[in-house]
């Protein structure tokens, strides 16, 4: 103890340091009852002292960590629920790569008559090697069209084509995401002058 700067007679400490008092007779029964509950995990869910303890300065980090954990879990669920299908490939004109063009993806919405139910889904510009890629697309059936830009050296001999080397949309080969392929190369048919 520091120097006795409290000016309390030392007898007070002596008198009280080993002070004993008989607790009320029912105390043990109350402790025993609570102890049985605590050990069997049946204590009251509304124990305010636990709630107060949760927000004590030392424990203020717990709610923050809980919220951060929940946000992370939600993020994982959200990312997991996003579609993971992809359709990628390369556009060609004969043996040459098509470098100036656009890939269009159409989704079919009817299994019985897919060609009558196509709707535009998205488009991607071809890169310098003629590649295109559509990521995170929902499961289903798709039509893939390549449109050759007028400033392309292959234009106007090559104008457009569908996956399956077809000029007509209703003759194109459908792409089904439940039977995925690594690549979907599109060979644009050459136009013949009649």
């Amino acid at each position: 103890m520091e120097e006795n700067d409290h000016n309390i007679p030392p007898q007070v400490r002596e008198l009280f340091h080993d002070f004993e008092a008989e607790p009320p007779p029912q105390s043990w029964d109350l402790i025993r009852a609570r102890l049985t509950g605590e050990q069997s995990g049946t204590h009251s869910p509304l124990n305010w002292s636990h709630l107060v303890g949760w927000f004590q300065p030392m424990n203020r980090l717990y709610p923050v960590l809980t919220v951060a954990g929940l946000v992370l879990i939600a993020l994982f669920i959200w990312l997991g629920s996003k579609p993971s299908n992809q359709i990628k490939g390369q556009a060609m004109a004969d043996q040459a790569k098509l470098t100036r063009g656009t890939a269009y993806l159409f989704r079919t919405h009817d299994r019985v008559s897919p060609y009558d139910s196509v709707r535009f889904f998205g488009k991607k510009e071809l890169d310098s090697t003629g590649h295109f890629a559509f990521h995170r697309i929902p499961s289903g059936s798709y039509l893939l069209r390549i449109h050759v830009h007028p400033d392309s050296p292959h234009y106007p001999k090559y104008k457009h084509g569908y996956y399956g080397e077809q000029l007509q949309w209703n003759q194109a080969t459908l792409i089904h995401t439940d039977h995925p392929q690594e690549n979907y190369p599109v060979r644009v048919p050459k136009l013949t002058s009649k």
Partner: peptide, 23 residues
Amino acid sequence: AARMYGICLRFAGHALEAQDILQ
């Protein structure tokens, strides 16, 4: 219990509070 209840009585404002601390 008697020694600990002595501590509880000193720290508490009244006997009921001391019993709470004891439990």
